[in-house]
Design a protein around this nucleic acid. Structure first.
Length: 456
RNA sequence: GUGGUCGUAGCUCAGUUGGUUAGAGCGCUGGUUUGUGGUGCCGGAAGUCGCGGGUUCGAAUCCCGUCUUCCACCCCA
């Protein structure tokens, strides 16, 4: 019985057109990565579990795809752990490898492992797939492609400035106007928690605050109360709920709120510095927006954090994100190496560009000319010409079978091949080719060289 | 991980309160007097109605399970 063909949940096949369009986006991103001085690296699809586990928070760990050990993995495992509720320990006994969840953590691992060969500051870019055991939705897949650029070994805020400009340059080049680059700083969030006297509730507090634009002030306060943050602390937070105005206005209000928090003020200073380099007029198509409610779940961020929202009217989660991580390499044993990076979500950018119909027609690049096959003799004659065409850089194809004319013409039409060459008995005798323009229907009898000149 | 939703030919879907050999459009394929595509006309192939159980004389239709899709949480690209 025939097996029903299928692919796993949250994965996709890509058609020729889709691949060409993905490559168009990737080539654009890559070009700008290189212009900004980033060098490519690649890392394995899977890592040792302990490289990945514990870097993304509890939620992230749950979404990491684990790879079952080979061989008699069950015989070596202590099954009793399941009954005593120590499932995590059992998991680590039967699974020692996992698919990478992002590109940042493997990169940190790479940096530490190759530190002797790396000259700092090290700027690398990486465009590879990552996997998350999430429940799929639109724009949300279990296998997707991230395009990351990171710098490690410099704590200069100029890196943040450059990365913002890099975002803008890429989106401008993709004609994706109106993206919003949201920025915040973990130090500011820590400062707010400090001022509230809720340092120990930092995570609960940021998770709740993050939902402000979604569920509103009342609900956010309610959630904070339910997490055990007292009313007095929530009242302190009040100015944050009503922040308005420009980047500079928000900075001014926050400065006042955080006047007693060293770390908070430090965060504000960083944001101020960045804004002094990038007022919105210096960005070509994107807008930089200070969003104090931006939290981001990834545990390793310590300074500035970024998230990119698609243009208004497009319903899509963030199409990019990133931030500064001061001690990610420290986890692997290399201290005092600060890093900062951004990520482009290829799959979501694709969906946004598709929805806005911004893919250039030129992306579709197939065969340029098809030789019609009239039979064995004629085909042999045409076959001799193919390499001449190809050497001239013309994408050329000879129909493989001497099928009916209608079928061959229809093939050219379907594949949007712009020219067809008819070389039958008469043409061969005259030493010329009959070139047909499929768009206009016009036909002309030309020499081989004339045809090549016209097409190349 | 929680709650909901969808699943019928390659694709988009119809299928009345469970009742004979399950339909349409598009696509595919063949023909339309044989060297010309995109629109015409005529014919053809193709579905164990997601999968597995159950109820029934009888199930695409009702029930349970499972997988998949999409959505809201959660989280994120």
């Amino acid at each position: 019985m025939a097996q029903k063909p299928s692919i796993p949940k949250g994965t996709r096949d890509f058609s020729p057109l889709e691949v060409q369009r993905r490559q168009y986006i990737m080539n654009t991103i890559k070009r700008h990565f290189e212009l900004y001085g980033f060098m490519p690296i690649e890392t394995p699809s899977f890592e040792n579990s302990d490289t990945l586990m514990g870097k993304y928070g509890e939620e992230g760990d749950r979404l990491i795809f684990k790879i079952l050990n080979s061989g008699e993995y069950l015989k070596k495992a202590d099954v009793n752990l399941l009954e005593t509720g120590k499932e995590n320990q059992l998991t680590s006994q039967i699974s020692e490898k996992a698919l990478r969840y992002d590109l940042t953590v493997p990169f940190a691992r790479y940096v530490v492992q190759n530190q002797n060969d790396i000259t700092f500051p090290f700027k690398r870019f990486q465009m590879q797939n990552v996997w998350r055991a999430d429940r799929p939705q639109k724009g949300r897949f279990r296998e997707f492609t991230q395009c990351d650029a990171d710098v490690v070994g410099s704590d200069s805020l100029l890196q943040e400035v450059e990365l913002i400009q890099l975002y803008d340059a890429v989106f401008t080049d993709l004609k994706l106007n109106g993206c919003t680059i949201k920025i915040n700083n973990r130090k500011v969030l820590a400062g707010i928690a400090e001022v509230m006297g809720a340092e120990d509730r930092l995570i609960d507090f940021t998770v709740a605050l993050d939902k402000l634009d979604k569920i509103g002030k009342e609900k956010v306060q309610e959630e904070m109360r339910s997490k055990g943050i007292d009313q007095e602390a929530i009242d302190v937070l009040d100015p944050v709920f009503s922040l308005t105005g420009s980047y500079a206005d928000k900075i001014a209000s926050m400065k006042e709120l955080l006047k007693d928090s060293t770390i908070g003020l430090q965060g504000i200073e960083e944001l101020e510095f960045i804004n002094s380099f990038i007022d919105n007029s210096s960005l070509k198509s994107a807008a930089l927006d200070l969003d104090i409610t931006l939290a981001r779940g990834l545990n390793y961020y310590t300074g500035c954090i970024f998230e990119v929202a698609a243009p208004d009217g497009v319903k899509m989660g963030s199409i990019g994100g990133g931030g500064r991580y001061d001690d990610l390499t420290g986890i692997f044993g290399l201290k005092n190496v600060s890093g900062v990076g951004i990520s482009f979500g290829l799959d979501r950018i694709y969906l946004v560009i598709e929805q806005l119909e911004l893919f250039p027609d030129s992306v579709r690049a197939g065969v340029e000319v098809l030789f019609i096959n009239f039979g064995a003799t004629e085909a042999r004659y045409c076959a001799g010409l193919l390499s001449r065409f190809r050497e001239s850089g013309i994408k050329t194809e000879l129909y493989p079978d001497s099928a009916k004319m209608k079928k061959q013409m229809s093939y050219a039409d379907r594949n949007e091949i712009p020219y067809v060459i008819l070389a039958g008995e008469d043409e061969i005798a005259s030493g010329k080719l009959n070139l047909k323009n499929m768009r206009t229907g016009e036909q002309s009898l030309l020499t081989v060289q004339e045809v090549i000149d016209r097409l190349s």
